Computed example of a mutant assay.
Amino acid sequence: MSDLKKLEATIRKGQTAFFAAAKALLEIERRGLWKPNFTSIVEYAAARFGLGGCDVSRYRNAAIVLENLDGIEKPPTNEAQCRELAKLRHQEPQLKVWSAVVGSGEKITAKLIADTAAKLLGGDDGEPKPSEPVSPIEDRTAIHEVATALNFLQAAQERVNTLGEEERSSLLEQLDIAEQHIGELRSSLSAELVSA
């Protein structure tokens, strides 16, 4: 076997290992196996595997995308493909876009997935809809979701000094969106408390 073939085999094993690790981490999170020794899945993953909040999100999103596409003939083969599909949030658009990408016969790249999503799901101007994280796992509580979000925000705060100008601008836009959602959640909770 040539050196190139050996190295390619190592890369393929690494991709397979990433997907297996992603599924395992999601299972640990869903079943709450990280409790009671840690306050969050992010804290657990940092202590046990040296993963940061962004890493946990990548693993989680990849595992959810793989679940959503389970049973299809040609699943995603790398994390970049899953990352792009995760932006679609739900199973139906993920299946629609992935089927179109696979059916195109082109080399499957994250850019092809993004372009196909923009074409199939974009607004009237052909631009894709704003990216959002994968929807929360349904069996988790709202309190756990907010606690997890706080952990991600703390991790982002620790890394803010390493960001370039463009990344800071993008982060500010995402924070504006988060503040809007927080305001809506606060209003909803307040209205329910008043009516109770």
Rank of each mutant, 00 (worst) to 15 (best):
M1G: 10
S2E: 02
K6L: 13
L7R: 15
E8Q: 10
E8Y: 04
E8P: 00
E8G: 00
E8C: 07
I11N: 03
I11P: 01
R12N: 07
R12S: 07
R12W: 05
G14R: 10
A17H: 13
A17W: 09
F18M: 08
F18H: 09
A22G: 02
K23S: 09
A24C: 08
A24M: 14
L25E: 00
L26M: 07
L26A: 03
E27K: 14
E29R: 04
R30S: 04
K35T: 12
F38A: 02
T39A: 13
T39L: 13
I41H: 04
I41N: 01
I41S: 01
V42S: 02
V42M: 04
E43L: 06
Y44Q: 03
A45F: 08
A46L: 07
A47D: 07
A47H: 14
A47C: 09
G50F: 14
G50V: 12
L51E: 04
G52I: 01
G52V: 07
G53Q: 03
D55E: 05
V56T: 04
S57W: 08
Y59C: 02
R60L: 12
A63P: 04
A63V: 02
I64N: 00
L66Y: 05
L69R: 08
I72A: 06
E73R: 15
K74Y: 05
N78M: 13
Q81H: 14
C82Y: 03
L85R: 08
L85H: 11
K87E: 11
Q91T: 10
E92K: 15
P93Y: 08
Q94L: 08
L95Q: 15
L95Y: 06
K96C: 05
W98C: 01
W98Q: 05
S99T: 15
A100Q: 07
A100D: 09
V101Q: 01
V101R: 00
V102N: 06
G103S: 15
G103Q: 12
S104K: 11
G105T: 11
E106K: 15
I108F: 02
T109L: 09
K111E: 13
K111V: 13
I113K: 03
D115N: 14
T116E: 01
A118P: 10
L120M: 06
L120D: 03
G122E: 02
G122I: 09
G126P: 12
G126A: 08
E127N: 14
E127F: 14
E127R: 15
P128F: 01
K129A: 09
P130V: 06
S131R: 14
P133E: 02
I137M: 07
D139T: 12
T141N: 10
A142L: 14
A142C: 12
H144D: 06
H144Q: 12
E145H: 13
V146S: 04
V146I: 15
A147D: 08
A149H: 00
A149S: 10
L150R: 15
F152G: 00
L153E: 07
A155Y: 05
A156P: 06
E158T: 10
V160C: 04
V160T: 11
T162Y: 07
T162P: 00
T162A: 11
E167L: 10
Q174I: 01
D176T: 11
I177M: 08
I177Q: 10
Q180S: 12
L185C: 12
S187P: 05
S188T: 15
S190D: 12
S190H: 12
E192G: 09
A196D: 01
A196Q: 08
A196M: 07
